[in-house]
Design a protein around this nucleic acid. Structure first.
Lengths: 192, 192
DNA sequence: ATTTGCCTACCTACTAGTAGGATGAACTCA
DNA sequence: TGAGTTCATCCTACTAGTAGGTAGGCAAAT
């Protein structure tokens, strides 16, 4: 019980730090200060930094896709599903001090400095998202609620990039409100 | 002459490193090794890291907007202008090992860890881009070649985000070819 | 004669990671 | 039941390496 507590606390703190400052902007010292244990004790739970980030990515992916698949399995109209999906990213951005990105967006920006293990996990997160988006867009198209030009896959890639790239970019200028406005514009284009 | 040479060399190397690894992933040691002088000598030219990055941002902005304004002032059709503008980002991504981002895209992702001075410069880079894009989209709309829904400003923000955010994201999965495909899809949506 | 550019040598602070000891809870077995 | 054992967690103390930055000297050009 207490064991899980500390481990979970470490993961929670590390996730928050990475979502704001990035993997390279987060240190074991930062974690230890936030959790209230010594730096060496953090290493007890996650010997190497990669161990921590991998555990983090796995937990994040699991949680994220459980929510996404819940949205996709619902009886909502395609447009509502799309709005709820986009809302996940907006909610992340609006949480805390409005400077939190998607974990995998941050890792994506840092990809060149990361181990192949990490990059591979981020890549499969991206891929899984695009696949689900492709399905969603396809269904919406068949239902007649989406009328965009071009291939569904290209549109899915575009939507995902706006969300994942946008959450990084808007922190500099415009913030969550601008992010919201951009998503709205995007959805209008999807509807055609 | 020789002074300018070294200074320029430092700027060139630093820009390349930041575009790939980020400000926090680049060190004076890295620069000194690439240029072939000692670390302390880099400090002679740019005492603080912020001095270097500010000089870099100013040079980058000047060069970038000289090119952009050249495109906008040309006699090309709006669609051609838009393609040439997007092409600037794609060219950056395709240069070197295909892992180079826009300088301000990288700084944008790192914004939370940067000084206000730097963030302010990145912000004005973003703003200036969106203004020019808004003008371009407006002209294209009036000429009848662009028929997108929604406000021009929202569309400009969307286009810019796809370019600046996309150049970060596609390095993980898809690379320059995917980036190209996304831009193509975006232009189709702008044309309506 | 002063400035410029580069050097060696150094500083403090911080990075990830390790060694080994103290504590305490849980399990084992006579 | 009680003694011994194992194991997890946390600790202090440390390593080697890297970060940004400084002090001060030397040589060549202005």
């Amino acid at each position: 019980m207490k064991q899980t507590d500390t481990k979970t606390q470490i993961l929670d703190v590390a996730q928050d730090l990475i979502q704001r400052f990035g993997v390279n902007g987060m240190s074991y010292q930062d974690i230890s200060e936030s959790v209230g244990i010594r730096k060496a004790s953090v290493h007890t739970h996650f010997p190497k930094k990669d161990d921590l980030v991998i555990a983090l990515l796995d937990r994040y992916s699991d949680r994220f896709f459980r929510i996404v698949d819940g949205i996709l399995a619902s009886n909502d109209a395609p447009e509502v599903k799309l709005r709820r999906y986009c809302g996940l990213f907006e909610t992340t951005l609006r949480s805390g001090d409005q400077d939190k990105t998607c974990l995998c967006a941050m890792l994506g920006a840092e990809t060149v400095t990361l181990s192949e293990q990490l990059t591979e996990r981020v890549r499969s997160f991206y891929q899984a998202n695009e696949e689900r988006l492709t399905d969603l867009l396809d269904m919406g198209r068949q239902a007649g609620s989406f009328r965009f030009h071009g291939e569904t896959q290209a549109m899915a890639a575009l939507v995902f990039t706006v969300l994942e790239g946008g959450i990084l970019v808007v922190r500099v200028h415009g913030g969550a409100d601008k992010f919201h406005q951009m998503i709205e514009q995007l959805i209008q284009l999807v509807k055609g």
